[in-house]
Design a protein around this nucleic acid. Structure first.
Length: 271
DNA sequence: CTGGTCACCTGGAAGC
DNA sequence: TGCTTCCAGGTGACCA
């Protein structure tokens, strides 16, 4: 499900509803997702006020003060929803955290997601420390992108999906941003000239910002915390559009498998 | 460092 | 209708 735009839309909605609210209780019903789930949520969180929610790449960091931070990742099928207190859990509803007006519910059929306590400074956490450029952050520009791509022999699409270089870009937005930049997915990452790197940086930022403004991309199970569906999938230029016309030139969108992932591109616009 | 494969897990869609 | 196969928004381990 979720790439950076979906995670950011989730973050904003949860922050609007929950920051400042106190935790009244919590239930953990499942032993493990990708990692074992914390079993002491209720005793550690009861009475704590949510101070803020930060995002790093596709991770969300819930700050409950007093060095109590929860790190969440939605994997492929994870969702964080706001439901009315007392809403009974259904299949795949693994964790609830009860705030006064809302119950925050973590649902994840495939269980590739994660929920972990972070001890110590978040930037030193083993899952966060290796992460690369934040594409909506101030340090994301053509110079930084050029440095991280320099000498890369891999193709550009897997390079921008590699969280050690740039965070938050998954399969959908990699395809979309490369189309917007006019770059073929198989082009060697280290052989882009400065102008094309600058175009790629602009395309990534613009694509992610437009997707956030549209509430993310709903393909199957993603929805915003209040259930609203994301509208960006309607605006996908290439993703999941094999054979359909390129919105720029009308050429049929091509599809191939690149490192195990479905890749969509316009053979005419992208070189 | 590379690409390639597989694994984690469930469910939906497509094919027969 | 029912069974089988393939595919999916992520990540990381392993191998040649």
């Amino acid at each position: 499900m979720p790439e950076l735009p979906e995670v950011e839309v989730t973050r904003r909605a949860l922050a609007d509803a929950l920051v400042g609210c106190a935790v009244e209780g919590a239930q953990v019903r499942t032993a493990a997702l990708r990692y074992p789930l914390p079993r002491d949520l209720a005793p550690r969180l009861r009475g704590a006020h949510l101070a803020g929610i930060a995002r790093r790449g596709k991770y969300l960091l819930f700050d409950f003060g007093d060095d109590r931070r929860l790190l969440a990742h939605l994997g492929m099928s994870g969702r964080l929803r706001l439901v009315p207190p007392g809403t009974p859990p259904q299949k795949h509803d693994h964790v609830d955290i009860d705030f006064g007006p809302w119950r925050l519910r973590y649902t994840d059929p495939r269980r590739f997601g994660a929920l972990l306590w972070v001890d110590g400074p978040p930037e030193a956490h083993p899952l966060l420390a290796p992460l690369g450029l934040e594409p909506l952050g101030t340090g994301f520009d053509a110079v930084a992108m050029g440095l991280t791509l320099r000498g890369r022999r891999s193709a550009i699409k897997p390079a921008i999906m590699d969280a050690r270089r740039v965070v938050g870009i998954g399969n959908i937005y990699a395809c979309e941003a490369l189309h917007r930049a006019g770059i073929a997915p198989s082009w060697p990452a280290g052989e882009l000239d400065a102008a094309r790197i600058a175009a790629l940086v602009d395309a990534i930022r613009a694509t992610l910002n437009e997707a956030i403004a549209a509430g993310g991309s709903t393909l199957r199970d993603y929805a915003q915390p209040d259930g609203t569906l994301g509208r960006f999938a309607l605006r996908h230029r290439v993703y999941d559009r094999a054979g359909a016309p390129c919105p720029v030139c009308g050429t049929a969108i091509a599809h191939f498998r690149q490192l195990g992932r479905s890749t969509y591109y316009c053979p005419r616009c992208q070189r």
